[in-house]
Design a protein around this nucleic acid. Structure first.
Lengths: 335, 335
DNA sequence: CGTAACTTTTGAAACGATTCATTGAGAGGG
DNA sequence: CCCTCTCAATGAATCGTTTCAAAAGTTACG
């Protein structure tokens, strides 16, 4: 494997000059730069990141550790982070904790050994001790999709309370009054916040009510189960609008309603709003209105915050506003 | 940041001994191991991967570069690869090319600089020159979900011809005779193979016919489009079984059929088989039969092959057999 | 007790880059 | 012609490990 030494010999310069060509070409005479570049190409030289990092101390890569790579929200965050990091000449390693603190820990071990420049993480548990320890070792972290609280970490999140309000208010504005919120478990912060936001919106409209329908998980199948349970209530006119805590639930609910033996119509009998705006929401049988989070922007911002932290600047928490995307599922007024 | 030197001093041994404790503890007296381990804990020592790799030459990490992290097939491959690599004490970096040769190239650059132990890749283009060049630099690669041909690379793939045969034969065995294959573009190898397999199965049954319905992409929306086009043919009895080249198409087709103004029943009027067995296939309105690929096994095997290649052993191509998963969409015999 | 055969530990030489004090070469001024 | 200033290039020291020949310590045996 060819090293700076060979390149230097081939170009007739010293290794220091080769390094300068690589890192501060403006301090080297144009003609020399030319010659060294030619040698690099001729020999097929590829810098050794390990050696570079060992000496330089800092690393040219960041790590992004997400709860679920399968979730389109996180892949969009990853894209945003990668693009922003690329502008800084850095690269991003993507890893998946699958919501397991154990896998999360293993990945953090590797990242610490790699001495990555920073970690962007949506933590699996509540325990930030491990991250604090890494920070003590000089590796900054930024929390993604989770508020940092008193921990002293920077964070990037979306205002889920505002999102819940947005969804519920939209239903109220299109004339619905008897709303249901579907989501759970409530110990998931995002779910609790979205519910709180919906409650707040409903509280401002005297004639409106909000019923909480718990869910065991945020999946398609659980949505179907809840949808079947809700169908009779809708037929009796006791519910005319549904806010689902995510799109998978919303899709499952819609499916259960449309395919019941005595079908419930969407949006005629009940309006439906999801959350996350995943691709499937738009191509459901009846396209589903949803709350969109600025995923790529979240990733890009997380990169900026982690770089700031790396420079020793104080922690900041950035909260983005979610956005309502109206589709057919909540279009017309109630019957 | 604490290094072996401090650990050695704290434990009252030489740096060589600390290194031995880390890498071949069996060659160090138990009591000494104990003492060094204690020092490591006391000081919070974390090995520097860069230094380790620089000296050792080889790296403890592999790279997995996929076409689409959003695709459940690839995330399962990643899980399998990670698990297998962990058994070898190695870790896997996951990266996403989004089917762009440019992004693929950028990632390969980084991996080469990192001197990863090997690359598992589902290549975006047909050009393996870059991989060949990396191989010349001592970094082996294994092709995932793609046959290596004459290139001299190892590969892991699934027999898509067999998968196509499996799907079509299943429909024939449940009494269907007028089949349609939906998929495209045919320049995608996987699609072409699946079609070839289906053709072969149909050819063995004298009374059966197979009609090819091209698709511009393998998406839900394209499936809907094709489904709408097929509905009249089914009503006329000119098609009674559909093989879709992937599950997204199958889901879209089903949706279009069930929701037409004059609905087509599944499986009574037409049987439907998808491909990939993604989670959504099982929770579709009518659960969809599908062809399952052993994704995690593919990932694990890819890791084994790349390690073999790293040891200089000759390239191998492993082809797995796909598996039929029967669900309601193809259950009963034709009307 | 001497010696051979092990086991355990040592310490210095790599690995491939970056950095920085230093040297060298020209240019300009007095 | 000497001195100073700039701009370029040099090369040795350094980063934190691993490795390995050699030293030191231990055990067994005649």
């Amino acid at each position: 494997m060819v090293s700076v030494k060979e390149v230097a010999a081939h170009a007739g310069v010293s290794v220091g000059t080769v390094s300068n060509v690589l890192n501060r070409p403006d301090q080297v005479k144009a003609e020399t730069v030319e010659r060294v570049r030619a040698a690099i190409d001729a020999l097929g030289y590829v810098p050794n990141a390990a050696a570079r990092q060992l000496r330089a101390g800092r690393s040219r890569s960041l790590a992004l550790l997400v709860l679920d790579v399968g979730n389109p929200f996180f892949t969009d965050v990853a894209r945003g982070a990668e693009a922003r990091a690329a502008r800084e000449g850095m690269s991003v390693f993507l890893a998946n904790s699958d919501d397991s603190t154990e896998r999360e820990g293993l990945h953090l071990d590797v990242f610490e050994q790699q001495r990555v420049g920073g970690v962007l993480i949506s933590p699996a548990g509540d325990d930030l001790a491990r991250l604090a320890q890494m920070r003590a070792h000089g590796i900054p972290a930024v929390l993604v999709d989770r508020e940092a609280g008193e921990s002293g970490f920077s964070s990037v999140a979306v205002d889920d309370v505002a999102g819940g309000t947005l969804a519920a208010r939209h239903l109220l504005e299109t004339g619905r009054r008897r709303l249901a919120f579907v989501g759970g478990p409530l110990r998931i912060r995002q779910v609790a916040d979205r519910f709180a936001g919906a409650s707040a919106a409903v509280a401002q409209e005297p004639a409106a009510t909000l019923r909480l329908c718990g869910a065991d998980e945020m999946s398609l199948d659980e949505g179907k189960r809840v949808g079947e349970a809700l169908a009779p209530l809708i037929r009796e006119g006791r519910i005319d609008g549904i806010v689902a805590a995510n799109d998978l639930l919303a899709i499952g609910i819609q499916r259960a309603l449309l395919f019941a033996d005595d079908p419930v119509r969407v949006p005629e009998d009940v309006a439906l709003v999801g959350y996350d705006d995943i691709a499937y929401a738009a191509s459901a049988v009846v396209p589903i209105s949803s709350i969109r989070q600025p995923s790529a922007l979240i990733g890009a911002t997380a990169v900026e915050l982690v770089l700031e932290a790396g420079e020793g600047r104080p922690a900041r928490s950035v909260v983005f506003a979610p956005e309502l995307v109206v589709r057919e599922s909540s279009a017309s007024a109630p019957a």
